[in-house]
């Protein structure tokens, strides 16, 4: 069970939240200009990081607001959470290379 820090409500159990997958996937500015490969990249291709990962969560049984979390996908360590539009917190030194 994860304990997730909602930027508005504080630390709550995972069961109060809904998962939103990879964070920072920006909607294309000019959708009409995209070719099929670029659409596939936006819609389907995912980074699926093994290590520290920026992801979206929705506090669906709380304030019902979306926010981002940096979490390690092997240890499940949560580095911190931040509101939409804010800069992510600094990653610990071992970022990326974790097994």
């Amino acid at each position: 069970m994860l304990n997730i820090d909602c930027p508005w409500c504080g630390k709550r159990h995972e069961t109060e939240f809904r998962y939103g997958g990879e964070a920072h996937i920006a909607r294309p500015e000019d959708p009409a200009k995209l070719d099929d490969a670029e659409w596939a990249e936006f819609l389907f291709m995912r980074t699926n990081t093994k290590g520290y990962f920026a992801e979206r969560w929705l506090h669906s049984h709380g304030c019902r607001r979306w926010f981002n979390v940096i979490r390690h996908t092997v240890t499940h360590e949560i580095v911190g959470s931040y509101k939409m539009g804010e800069k992510p917190p600094k990653l610990p030194k071992s970022a990326g290379g974790a097994k």
Partner: peptide, 13 residues
């Protein structure tokens, strides 16, 4: 489990 993970364990709920 809904979240991305490479750990061979999930949440109890």
């Amino acid at each position: 489990d809904s979240f991305n993970s490479y750990a061979q364990r999930g949440s109890f709920h």
